[in-house]
Design a protein around this nucleic acid. Structure first.
Lengths: 151, 151
DNA sequence: GTCGGTGCAAATGCTTTGCATTGAT
DNA sequence: ATCAATGCAAAGCATTTGCACCGAC
């Protein structure tokens, strides 16, 4: 809703990605740029298939193989995160400059809502600290249904 | 470490499973019993393949198809939970009579540790209550590495 | 006898990969 | 020229499913 989830993003994501690619001797190709652009257009979660469709629908022709390869690069770069609800399909979300969101999966309707749970970060960090670990990230999925009386 | 995570298990798991199966007109077959037994022998997480191996190694011959079908039944019965770290393989854990455990995935070593985080339940329930939802379950995975100075 | 269950083998479907081609420095 | 990236089609692989046979009530 507002910017409270953002952590000072000075530079655009494409710059982050480009820098990262350069650092490992890889190239910031037009295909990779288009894929990142299309991802940014998503509000929340997206899937490889939907991304591929969106790209092709808007004339940015990129092959499936390149989409998958780029998703992996983006994940390595810490720009997106893979979320797995089931084994059918991977879901992805933009995480760069944000804390990963908690996902509420409605078991009755199948809807998925992303919410921020600031306390979770503190909880996570404490759990790690107690064990001498440095947190790198987390994923929380909550399965819930409407509290109405119907089963 | 101790029993504080248990919620009064009066009856053995097989009884729970049998009752559940009967309720839906299904049978508690020897194969299903053996699969549940083998699952109980695990401390924490297990995978379908490892379970199948263990069954066959100990002479309890069950087919792969039956293992997968039974895992699904056990999940529906609320006895086990599926945990997905990646898309290679599903991991399962016994959850009946416990709160699902938080899993700490060591990104440096690949080790996975299951821990109890009681506060998480309260947090989850509050998040759901605020939205008029009833929690059915959750999954929290924390990715972390050793806090030592090495990358 | 009816039904559900099992095992086998084949199918599924997302994701990955091999390979020839293409593009940038 | 060299080295990486792309696209296509083929492969991979955990999981699922169709089907014939089997066993319990």
């Amino acid at each position: 809703m507002n910017g409270q989830n953002s952590i000072e993003i000075i530079e655009p994501l494409c710059a982050v990605f480009r820098r990262r690619l350069k650092a490992e001797g890889a190239k910031y190709t037009p295909e990779r740029a288009q894929i990142l652009d299309a991802i940014i257009e998503y509000d929340g979660l997206f899937e490889a298939e939907s991304l591929l469709e969106k790209l092709n629908r808007s004339g940015r022709n990129v092959s499936k193989a390149t989409v998958y390869r780029t998703l992996k690069l983006l994940e390595d770069a810490g720009i997106i995160q893979t979320v797995l609800f089931d084994r059918d399909q991977s879901h992805y979300q933009l995480v760069y400059g944000k804390q990963p969101q908690t996902l509420i999966v409605r078991v009755d309707t199948g809807e998925i809502e992303a919410v921020d749970v600031p306390e979770l970060i503190a909880l996570r960090d404490r759990i790690c600290r107690q064990r001498g670990l440095t947190p790198e990230g987390h994923r929380l999925q909550i399965f819930a249904k409407s509290a109405k009386k119907d089963a």
